[in-house]
Simulated assay, not measured.
Amino acid sequence: MTTFLTPQQLADRTSAAVGAAVAAGRELGLTVTDPTVLHDVFSVVVHLAPSPVVARIPTVLPHPEDLVALARRQQDELDVTRWLAGQGVPVIAPSPLVPQKPVQRDGFSMTFWPFVQEDRDRKPDYVANAESVADLHAAMRAYPGPLEFLSAADPQFIAESLARLDRHRALIGTAELDRARREWQILEPLVRSRAAFEARFPGVGLQPVHGDSPPANIFSGVDGDLYADFELVTLGPVEWDLAALGSEHESAYNRGARRNGTRPLDEEALGFVNALGMLRVVATLTLVPQLPELMEYLRPAVDQWQTMPFAGGLRIDETFDG
């Protein structure tokens, strides 16, 4: 039986996250008298007004109790965005008003960012954004810090979720779950092992990438666009950042790559990341009890997945067990 959080429980979680952020901000020396929630989906994002600081507190997580692993990923994001800002890349970098490290309080792990005024009259142009991602990738190539291979795919989360979905039959049908498990048999070796990936896709190359659909995570600030939300920053093929966006966005990215002298997208690697990205969507069904509204976004994606080539067109005999 699947038990969903009630509206009151969701409100209590948001309130607890805001309370933790306010207390942490005050301990760090910020004046906080009028906290304002800006977003509340996978994370609670709260402006610690009147201080020009925003706290982001992840709340919908596969393992909410594992704050150590979460803090490691948050530190990667802080380090990468700070470095990019130092290179002159337009990015939302960590707030300079507090130490640039994750802060844990009351069972939450949070990071702090500058408050940037949004240009609400501008509608995002996702195709133009996709073209600009090629420039972001060109800048990220030189990042000197360590990053894990395809950590954004979170293979452990996928494996655990596909094992658990038998207990959540209100979320997925038998045939859908069977397809997902068979696809995972093909894709898992390639995402678990860098050596396997490189053997299967020679010449594709790996580099630091944003990790979470950067065309959809460009913030329209009043002073210009800023790359944002590097929570899933990872080492991977550039194709990962264009997963499931479609041919128009892929063509736009390729225009940007030609302009800045980097390589265009590889069709086979795109097939792989598209299939892997859809398995992450299936795995995310296990988070619906924590955030019931997710179902209205995930269900159309699962339906679309049914029309896509099985496992991105890869076959078991094409994989390499590293």
Rank of each mutant, 00 (worst) to 15 (best):
R259K: 14
A159Q: 09
I57A: 13
E27Y: 14
S51M: 09
L162D: 00
F201M: 06
E239V: 05
R72D: 08
F108R: 10
E118R: 14
G86T: 05
E318A: 07
E77W: 15
R194H: 02
L190N: 09
G25V: 05
Y126F: 15
R258G: 11
H63G: 02
R255G: 03
Q75F: 08
H47A: 14
F201S: 07
A275D: 07
L84D: 01
G107T: 11
D40S: 15
L291G: 07
T286Q: 03
R167S: 09
R179E: 01
F230C: 03
L206T: 00
R141V: 09
D79M: 14
P124E: 06
V127R: 10
Q117Y: 04
Q207V: 01
A142Y: 07
S220I: 01
T286W: 05
W184Q: 03
L67A: 10
L136N: 07
V37M: 06
G107Y: 15
D212R: 01
L147D: 03
P292H: 09
V89G: 10
P144R: 02
H63L: 11
G29Y: 12
I316H: 02
L48I: 15
F108M: 13
S220V: 00
V68A: 12
R263P: 01
R164C: 00
L190W: 08
T307G: 06
V68F: 12
L38W: 13
L285N: 03
